[in-house]
Amino acid sequence: MENWDDLKFVLAMMRHGTMSAAARYLNTNVATVSRRLERMALSLDTPLFEKRGQNFVATEAARRLSALAEEVDQKLRAELSSLHAGDFSAPVPLELAAPPAVHAHYLVPRLTALSEHLPHVLLTLTDKVFAQGLGEADIQIRIGRPEGGRLKARKFRDYALRVFHAEDKPLGNEWIGLSHRYPDSDYLTRIHPAAQQMPRYRVEEMPMLYEAVRATGLPGLLPDFMVVEGDGLVQADLPDNGLPDELWITYHETRHGDVTLRAVVDWLCRTST
């Protein structure tokens, strides 16, 4: 294979799922993505992606090549970081993916402290609700411990989803839920059986749900780390009001020797309580 650069197009398709999304990430156009994938498929004499309806499905060859490209990508990032190990004047960009609630109520309030501790780190925060892999991120905070794959994982913190409502408003049967793209969108009814079958409102992300509960006083199922003293919310007086879960912080195993990445992970875990 002469055109090693084509591997990044396979990896982008695996990460993003469509040619248009891959093209946006690679700062090119769909025609170029299609041409480069076709060139690689011809050179290998095997198909990489099969069109099924509106979607592209990766073949075994594409999955194996993308795994190779992923490892090369992560090793390259680690090597570039190690070139400046100990040189705190050289900026090191890192991308951290996490659910919006973690960003809003944990990471964003601590950005200044992190910058003071590691001033050379240029951090990009990316929303990722569902834990479908690192993607372009260097570090990911995700719900639940990863199973399989080549990821290093550390417990970030325990939490529970609990029903909260306004402290000056009695618990009623109307409520606010997340959109149906979340698997736990209607879990509130498990804890609050008297709640109506359908919510009064649906919103797209957990931070918006938190703000909607505060604004309306209606109950909503929120991570307990989001609710703090003085925000006007109380935990509903319901038996077994809590669905326990865990947040884990992960990164590719090839980055374990990356001094800067490890320093960020250590600081985040150390200050997670």
Rank of each mutant, 00 (worst) to 15 (best):
D168L: 00
V259S: 15
M14E: 12
K155E: 13
G230T: 13
T18H: 03
R270P: 00
A67V: 08
G86A: 06
A67S: 13
A23T: 07
L209G: 13
L96V: 09
A101R: 03
L80R: 03
F56E: 10
P239D: 07
L222A: 08
E253Y: 06
P244L: 05
D6E: 13
A58F: 05
R39N: 14
Y201F: 14
P239L: 05
G172F: 10
H192M: 14
W248Q: 05
V203R: 10
I191D: 07
A23V: 05
R181K: 13
K169E: 04
H192C: 13
K155M: 13
H256L: 12
P199S: 11
L222F: 14
K75P: 00
G53M: 06
M19Y: 10
F156Y: 03
P183M: 06
F130S: 01
A131S: 11
F88S: 01
T124W: 04
D87R: 06
A131E: 09
V30G: 01
S81G: 12
H84F: 14
A97S: 15
S43W: 00
A160N: 03
M19Q: 15
A101H: 06
E79T: 15
F9A: 12
D258N: 02
V33A: 09
D6G: 08
R150Y: 00
E253F: 04
P244R: 03
T216P: 04
N241E: 07
P207R: 15
M40E: 05
V121Y: 12
A85M: 06
P93A: 07
E167Y: 01
V92A: 00
E50L: 15
E38I: 00
A153K: 02
T254K: 08
A195I: 10
A113Y: 01
M1Y: 05
R15Y: 09
P91N: 02
T189M: 08
P219W: 07
L261M: 09
W4Q: 13
R162K: 12
G220N: 05
P109E: 13
Y106V: 05
L48G: 03
S89A: 12
G133T: 05
E136K: 07
D138N: 03
R36I: 08
D127V: 12
F225D: 11
A23P: 13
A22N: 07
D5Y: 06
S272D: 01
M198R: 15
E205V: 12
S185N: 14
D224C: 09
L44I: 11
L222K: 09
N29V: 15
R162S: 09
G133L: 04
A166M: 01
V203A: 13
G53C: 06
N3M: 10
L96M: 06
R77F: 05
H252A: 11
Y210H: 15
L11Q: 14
D258G: 03
A236I: 11
A12P: 01
V234K: 14
A236W: 13
P223L: 09
R190F: 03
F49I: 08
A22H: 06
H105A: 11
P47E: 02
L37P: 01
